[in-house]
């Protein structure tokens, strides 16, 4: 019996009888982070890091939630669990599981390069590592985020000088706040789509300092937006919601923007390659740093990345079936929709 198993409900730990990021209702769920595919409705009990808790509470409402600090150990039925920074979004964790000398780490989603906002990724030694592979192909290699922010700032400045609105599409939880933190807020006013504003408020309340933003409401006229930066959810940029801007340039910040094809398909004016997931080099470095000999590969190019690890890196790697979704861009994100209703 393996310490962690992939079942139809989620990643299951038999000796402790708990699940990690389950996608069907269970009695006890350990949650890596607040993205919708990792923290779902309906579990009887939730455990996550203190920093991840506010957003999860905001999203899931009145749930039975306990928190731990990063690095703090919790023992359940003799199995030792601890949470370690995954560098993906604020509060996101890899979950270390230790039982009778055997160590597994479930990484959830992660990125290695620090973004200045999330707790920096911490390599954790283990025997078996559960990795994501959202961008697990050698064509995905990120530029330093400073370079990307410079590109965004230049784009915004240029639009501002032409009296245009710069509408930047970004995932409401994580990416939007990373953008707020990284851009040059001196360039002009910043507006936010309702879904983004709410998440941002939650994070401000937990002590994260972000530049001032104004939530977009009916009271603003198209004139008010001229020269400003608007942070919008990906689904909003393709909808009637955009009508309020007279002349806008639309940008998208996502790892998928690395490919010209995806950029075109989204019909955006600009694509900025900025991801909260590890790129090809980071995935390989992170796996090496764990010292793991066995690697389970989840979301993304699972079969290709697992084959690479097996054939070229000499690891016992396999493709694990999960319902995680990676960086969402194409589908209408359920969370966006849910928040838009009351936006």
């Amino acid at each position: 019996m393996a310490l962690l198993e992939f079942t139809n409900k989620g990643i299951y730990c038999p000796p402790a009888d708990v699940y990690i990021d389950p996608w069907r209702p269970v009695s006890k769920a350990l949650i890596t982070h607040g993205h919708a595919d990792h923290s779902r409705w309906g579990h009887q009990h939730y455990l996550c890091t203190e920093a991840a808790a506010p957003v999860i509470r905001y999203r899931l409402g009145n749930i039975n939630l306990s928190t731990v600090q990063f690095g703090e150990a919790t023992t359940i039925n003799g199995v030792k669990f601890s949470f370690h920074p995954a560098g993906h979004i604020v509060g996101s964790a890899q979950i270390r599981v230790e039982h009778k000398g055997e160590v597994w780490v479930a990484s959830g989603d992660y990125k290695v390069a620090p973004d200045g906002l999330s707790e920096p990724f911490e390599p954790v030694r283990c025997h078996t590592f559960i990795t994501e592979s959202t961008f697990g192909l050698p064509v995905y290699r990120w530029k330093p985020q400073d370079t990307v922010f410079e590109e965004i700032n230049d784009w915004w400045r240029q639009n501002r000088d032409q009296g245009k609105v710069s509408v930047l599409a970004a995932y409401a939880l994580g990416k939007a706040q990373r953008l707020l933190h990284g851009i040059d807020a001196e360039i002009g006013p910043i507006f936010t789509h309702g879904a983004i504003e709410k998440t941002t408020q939650v994070m401000r309340k937990q002590g994260i300092r972000l530049p001032e933003t104004r939530r977009i409401t009916q009271q603003y006229k198209s004139k008010d937006f001229e020269g400003s930066l608007v942070l919008a959810t990906p689904s909003a940029t393709g909808s009637n919601w955009m009508r309020r801007f007279k002349s806008a340039s639309v940008g998208i910040a996502s790892g998928w923007m690395a490919l010209r094809g995806t950029r075109r398909r989204r019909a955006a004016d600009r694509g900025f390659v900025l991801s909260d997931h590890a790129d090809w080099n980071e995935l390989n470095d992170a796996i090496k740093a764990t010292g793991a000999e066995r690697v389970a590969v989840t979301h993304g190019y699972t079969n290709l990345f697992a084959r690479w690890l097996r054939e070229e890196c000499g690891l016992d790697a396999w493709e694990a079936a999960t319902e995680y979704e990676g960086e969402s861009l194409d589908k209408d994100d359920a969370e966006d929709m849910e928040n838009e209703k009351d936006a």
């Binding site: 192909l137 050698p138 064509v139 995905y140 290699r141 690395a258 490919l259 010209r260 094809g261 190019y301 290709l304 084959r307 690479w308 054939e311 070229e312």
Partner: peptide, 23 residues
């Protein structure tokens, strides 16, 4: 990288010049 991985990447990118430039 092995050739098969390059080929798979190329398939995802859809454009050989771009796949090479990215890799």
């Amino acid at each position: 990288i092995p050739l098969w991985l390059f080929e798979e990447s190329y398939h995802v990118v859809g454009d050989l010049s771009e796949a090479i430039a990215l890799t």
